[in-house]
């Protein structure tokens, strides 16, 4: 297991939508060992030593083995991501990773990938991984607007024709949510299919409801506030499915879970 904790340089940083950015970081060893669904913790402290205090978790959106880079895809949602968006190429960022348990890579039967919003990041990584291994999958990606999806797809070298796209404003692909195309897909498959999904909580719940009893396995990637990212603080608890009061920890047990094991 390779685990890096050091300063890594920003190589690429571009805005691809309103408040949405793609960030490419020079981290050859992380790029080499990262698996789809894994994440990194990135320090966003600038010159101020302790503010913001904590590193932020980001899914790895894809890797580039030739250039030795990893890419993340993020939206400005708070102080940390605002600061991050102002960093220029050449800046060093504290990077810890790759972390967590990712998606199952070997699955039997048909495979459907579903990504919504920023949740498209690990789905893009997984899709590229599957393609590179010579296998195939149906990939459904959704966003609010077309801009951010187009930017991410362009940066990650995924052809628009290869994926099914939905946007809430109808500016790209089908108007609506990812559950539309997913429902259609599910009408035409046998029971031996796997869905692997990442996106906002309501999307994951809808995907789970739609796929109930129709697929062999549904894997979901969850998110949470995190302090350490390595299982020290137990801060990223998420309720297990069942009557007992038990929790999983997203950073260590996940972020990818069998949907049967967690409350969605």
């Amino acid at each position: 297991m390779v685990l890096v904790d050091r300063k890594c340089k920003i190589i690429h940083h571009s805005q691809v939508g309103p408040e949405v950015y793609v960030l490419g970081i020079d981290a050859v060893d992380v790029a080499k060992h990262a698996l789809p669904g894994q994440f990194v913790m990135i320090g966003v402290r600038g010159k101020s030593a302790f503010d913001p205090l904590l590193r932020r978790p980001f899914s790895i959106a894809w890797t580039d083995h030739v250039k030795g880079m990893i890419f993340i895809f993020y939206r400005v949602v708070g102080r940390g991501t605002r600061l991050l968006s102002e960093y220029m190429p050449g800046t060093g960022l504290e990077l810890l990773g790759p972390l967590g348990r990712g998606f199952s890579l070997e699955v039997s039967g048909r495979r459907i990938l579903v990504g919504g919003g920023l949740g498209i990041a690990p789905i893009i990584f997984l899709y590229k991984w599957i393609k590179a291994s010579g296998a195939s999958a149906t990939c459904i990606l959704g966003a609010r607007t077309g801009d951010e999806l187009l930017g991410a797809l362009k940066a990650s070298d995924i052809s628009l024709e290869d994926v099914i796209i939905t946007t809430e404003d109808g500016s790209l692909g089908k108007k609506g949510l990812v559950t539309g195309p997913l429902a259609k897909c599910l009408d035409h498959i046998g029971g031996d299919a796997t869905i692997q999904a990442c996106g906002p909580a309501p999307m994951l719940k809808a995907v789970s409801n739609l796929s109930n009893h129709k697929v062999r396995l549904l894997e979901v990637s969850l998110e949470s506030y995190m302090a350490c990212g390595i299982g020290l603080c137990l801060g990223c608890a998420h309720k297990k499915r069942g009557d007992s009061e038990e929790y999983v920890h997203i950073c260590k047990d996940g972020p990818v879970f069998d949907a049967r094991d967690v409350v969605l």
Binding site: P52, L53, S224, Y225, A227, C233, L234, C236
Partner: peptide, 17 residues
């Protein structure tokens, strides 16, 4: 089992848990 989430929140130069 611990508390229900959210369990942590960042504050200026601090961590609330």
């Amino acid at each position: 089992p611990g508390n229900p989430p959210p369990r942590i929140f960042e504050t200026p130069c601090g961590l609330l848990n």
